[in-house]
């Protein structure tokens, strides 16, 4: 009688990638500070400030050329500002801050997990943070 034999059939499974789009929320003080340093802005201060016709409390970031600071409420992740639809502050400055925050936050989170992180400037003005999972920090 022949003994049973086992045949190994490797099963192929799809290597999946996925893309997730994120609406950035400003919730991390360290990343706010790192973004300000990156953009050579004054260090943010936690305080209550008067915008044109309202008061706001949070981490205040003074963007270049902006009449009033941008106020980050880290509990809600929301920003308060009044640039009078661009007349009291250039939108591109706020966009640059949001970009810098997201880049710094991504780097902070990846390093917390011990991953190696590199940063690349893309021709269209985007910044790519590449995280090598399992790589040294």
């Amino acid at each position: 009688m022949n003994s049973p034999r086992a045949i190994h059939y490797p099963r192929r499974e799809p290597a999946l990638s996925h893309i997730v789009e994120i609406k950035t929320e400003i919730r991390d003080e360290a990343a706010v500070r790192a973004a300000c340093t990156r953009l050579q802005l004054a260090a943010p201060e936690h305080k209550t400030v008067r915008l044109f016709n309202a008061a706001a409390t949070g981490f205040c970031v003074q963007l270049p050329g902006w009449q009033y600071p941008v106020v980050a409420n880290l509990q809600t992740g929301q920003l308060s500002y009044d640039n009078y639809n661009g007349h009291w502050g250039d939108w591109s400055r706020l966009n640059s801050f949001l970009q810098a925050y997201a880049v710094e936050k991504a780097k902070i989170e990846a390093r917390k997990k011990g991953h190696m992180v590199t940063e690349t400037a893309i021709q269209d003005g985007s910044i790519r943070v590449t995280v090598r999972v399992g790589g040294a920090a």
Partner: peptide
Amino acid sequence: KRIEITVSPEGATSIKTLG
């Protein structure tokens, strides 16, 4: 295995995984 985080000049973020 890589994760690519791309942040546009407007601050829009996308995360892509590879491998």
